[in-house]
Design a binder for these strands. Structure first.
Lengths: 286, 286
DNA sequence: GTTCCGCATGAATCGATAG
DNA sequence: ACTATCGATTCATGCGGAA
């Protein structure tokens, strides 16, 4: 395990070839979108993006544990007034590669980038595609439960007659059990829509997403000591989140400046953790 | 124009063949999702869905004006633990048919279907795919600007039938005054994420979206007297919204009961419009 | 005339059981 | 093996009657 908790400089396709099979619990990444960050990633053209990505996802598939999960944060860009189809093309290609397309989460960016165009509004959401190797995978739903909505305050004070009837009609033996499930319950399971601000208000790096985004998926799909891989680590947000949550991380980036930046952020995060361990909550907007 | 403001019984593929080219300003529809609503629509299998749909979208393309827009409300279902790819497959096929895939709006359903599963959370969003014939199309962004401020969010997002009826009794003093409050308030453009609850008390039709959903797109993409087509009219929500907003409508459905139901709803809506014309606002939650 | 409170139910999905 | 049916699970909202 000397390969964990490191930030590695290089192309993840090559770097990961040195990794063993089935060693990663969660891959979480936000790859450079097509033709963005041109200086750093050679500006992969939208039409070449799918082939470029598949070479890398092949390695992700190999290093991921059978019960592991791959979360891909991606959004197609607008080209010639149209949404480009590289994301939509990628999904069937990844399925052909062996992935299961399990789910698509929506990240609603509450404070999206301002702007005005004659033919479209501000884009305030992104896709988080979930891929798996098997239909059965590790998922720890209790870790991300959210406070119940206000409706429950009144609703659960006295259980209605109908709730009992409904439970009773279906479960012959134990309606008392079902009722006890609800009484005193103050948390509910979230949905597949996440409401997070983009708050990338940290000091000297411009992260693509807030720390709460990887944190939510890390808590949902891993346990402490598990290994989280981000093959396009960028400014290091995934690694910082993993470390704060007591997971091991592996971060890869082809850009040396990003690698250094991430290492520096991790050092600072470590220092803060030592002086005052923070509790860190990921919530959801009603 | 004797073919507008009618509800037509039949398969939209056949019916639309009798329509002239370039006569529709907006197609807004929520087709039966693959293998759903089997009793009424025959249950198109997910693997056959794309071909089934393309035969119909070919007609939509022909009857739509060059500056018109097609809004398609659709969501893929889960098959064998995976999201099926019929939507993702449909997009490139429609582009090959001549459509431009301009945008994808997200409808966040605040009250999604309950349930708990070991491998996924509740699905609480749907796609609203925007297709166009040309890169330049008609769009009236000012019509859907939303007031700044929290107070408006719950009250205005979803006006149900009964809400409106109730409000009429106090329109003169209460609701009307509120409307005047908006005047002079700052307004902002919305984003491509819509927050609306589903309608859960429509007993006659299982797949009711709230009237504010088509209303939002009708205001955004059409002007009064324009023609709105819903080729899978269902319980008639699109037609009611179009009529209320002073647009012409064409509704088609293969199910006779739905056609009758829609006609009845339109009669009721008309009666209410005559006795007290209402202003009707669609807002967005921050 | 408002607010409060009970109540029904919805484009769902999984796993087990039956044919 | 493969498909069809059924029961269990769960949360937010609108409606309608009552306070």
């Amino acid at each position: 395990m000397e390969w964990v908790n490191r930030i590695i400089l290089g192309d993840c396709e090559e770097i990961l070839k040195g990794f063993p099979d089935n060693c990663i619990d969660l891959v979480f990444t936000s790859p450079p979108y097509a033709d963005r960050r041109r200086q750093t990633y050679g500006g992969v053209k939208p039409d070449q993006y799918v082939d470029w990505f598949l070479l890398r996802s092949e390695q992700f598939l190999r290093v991921l544990k059978p019960t592991g999960t791959f979360i891909l944060n991606i959004k197609e860009r607008v080209v010639n007034g149209e949404r480009h189809t590289y994301v939509v093309d990628l999904i069937p290609r990844m399925r052909a590669q062996g992935w299961l397309w399990t789910e698509e989460f929506i990240w609603h960016k509450k404070n999206s980038f301002p702007g005005k165009w004659p033919n479209r509004f501000r884009d305030s959401w992104e896709r988080l595609l979930q891929f798996n190797k098997q239909r059965k995978f590790s998922m720890y739903q209790e870790a991300v439960m959210v406070p119940v909505g206000d409706w429950a305050k009144d609703r659960l004070v006295n259980l209605s007659e109908t709730d009992r009837i409904r439970d009773e009609s279906r479960v012959r033996s134990g309606f008392g059990k079902n009722v006890s499930n609800w009484v005193g319950r103050d948390k509910v399971y979230p949905t597949n829509v996440l409401h997070l601000a983009t708050e990338c208000s940290n000091r000297n790096h411009s992260a693509a997403f807030p720390e709460s985004l990887p944190a939510w998926f890390i808590e949902l799909f891993t346990q402490p000591e598990n290994v989280v891989l981000d093959p396009f680590i960028g400014s290091g947000t995934t690694a910082v989140a993993a470390k704060r949550l007591g997971r091991n991380y592996v971060g890869i980036d082809i850009n040396e400046r990003y690698c250094r930046m991430t290492e520096e952020r991790l050092r600072q995060s470590q220092a803060r953790l030592l002086e005052s361990p923070e509790t860190f909550q990921v919530g959801e907007m009603p």
